[in-house]
Simulated assay, not measured.
Amino acid sequence: MGFSVSGSTVVILIGCLIAFSAAFTVATDSFDRITTAQDERADHLLDQQNTAIEINDVQRDNETVTVTVTNTDSTTLAIDRTDLLVDGEYRNETPTIRTGTNDELREGTNLWIPGDRLEYEIESNGDRVKIITQNGVVGSATLTEES
């Protein structure tokens, strides 16, 4: 009778040790994932705080709308992740990129560097324009008739 109690106690203790090691591994992995997600969220919020755009000019000439928008803060943005809406309708237009200092065209890149301007030319009769960046910063304007 003495060995069976001791043997079963050892089996239970080994089972508890294995269960604890499995639970510890899962808890550590979960904590690492939560920490990584919090770090990524903090990075995203910092990028959002360091992003600002300014719609410089919005004009309509007959049925062509011209929109000029400048990246005015310190975050470099991706052009293909910047959305253009005209009267709430998504427009898949490729803008012209002009450098901020000498107004020359820059081609073959997807980067919208601070100080650079995007110029969109769109066929539309819409009245409102909205530009949305990759991290949620929005600029909007109402169209004016060009004289």
Results as ranks from 00 to 15, higher is better:
residue 65 V to Y: 00
residue 50 N to H: 11
residue 119 E to G: 06
residue 68 T to A: 12
residue 115 G to W: 04
residue 83 D to K: 15
residue 61 D to N: 15
residue 60 R to M: 09
residue 62 N to D: 12
residue 43 D to C: 08
residue 13 L to H: 14
residue 53 I to G: 06
residue 33 R to Y: 03
residue 55 I to K: 10
residue 113 I to Q: 05
residue 98 R to M: 13
residue 11 V to F: 15
residue 52 A to K: 15
residue 64 T to R: 10
residue 60 R to V: 09
residue 40 E to K: 12
residue 116 D to W: 08
residue 40 E to Y: 11
residue 103 D to A: 04
residue 106 R to H: 11
residue 131 I to M: 00
residue 40 E to R: 10
residue 3 F to C: 05
residue 95 P to L: 03
residue 109 T to F: 09
residue 147 S to H: 14
residue 131 I to P: 00
residue 50 N to D: 08
residue 50 N to M: 11
residue 18 I to G: 03
residue 128 R to T: 09
residue 49 Q to F: 08
residue 24 F to P: 09
residue 32 D to Y: 10
residue 35 T to K: 15
residue 112 W to Y: 12
residue 45 L to S: 15
residue 79 I to T: 01
residue 47 D to L: 09
residue 100 G to P: 03
residue 30 S to H: 09
residue 32 D to S: 11
residue 59 Q to Y: 10
residue 40 E to I: 10
residue 74 S to K: 10
residue 63 E to P: 04
residue 33 R to H: 07
residue 109 T to K: 13
residue 66 T to Q: 14
residue 110 N to F: 06
residue 72 T to E: 01
residue 58 V to R: 01
residue 119 E to N: 13
residue 93 E to F: 09
residue 144 T to W: 08
residue 94 T to R: 13
residue 47 D to A: 11
residue 45 L to Y: 15
residue 79 I to S: 03
residue 76 T to N: 14
residue 61 D to V: 08
residue 74 S to D: 11
residue 80 D to R: 07
residue 23 A to L: 13
residue 71 N to Q: 02
residue 103 D to Q: 07
residue 81 R to T: 05
residue 94 T to V: 13
residue 51 T to K: 00
residue 25 T to A: 10
residue 125 N to F: 05
residue 108 G to H: 04
residue 145 E to G: 02
residue 64 T to S: 12
residue 84 L to P: 02
residue 21 S to E: 14
residue 7 G to W: 11
residue 28 T to H: 15
residue 116 D to R: 04
residue 113 I to L: 04
residue 136 G to C: 07
residue 105 L to Q: 12
residue 74 S to F: 04
residue 119 E to W: 06
residue 19 A to K: 06
residue 27 A to C: 06
residue 81 R to W: 05
residue 114 P to V: 00
residue 11 V to T: 09
residue 52 A to T: 10
residue 26 V to W: 08
residue 21 S to T: 07
residue 88 G to M: 00
residue 111 L to K: 15
residue 76 T to E: 11
residue 92 N to G: 04
residue 86 V to Y: 02
residue 85 L to P: 01
residue 88 G to A: 01
residue 113 I to C: 00
residue 100 G to I: 01
residue 43 D to T: 15
residue 56 N to R: 14
residue 62 N to K: 14
residue 87 D to G: 00
residue 79 I to C: 02
residue 46 L to I: 10
residue 47 D to S: 10
residue 111 L to N: 13
residue 27 A to D: 11
residue 85 L to C: 01
residue 64 T to K: 12
residue 42 A to L: 12
residue 81 R to D: 11
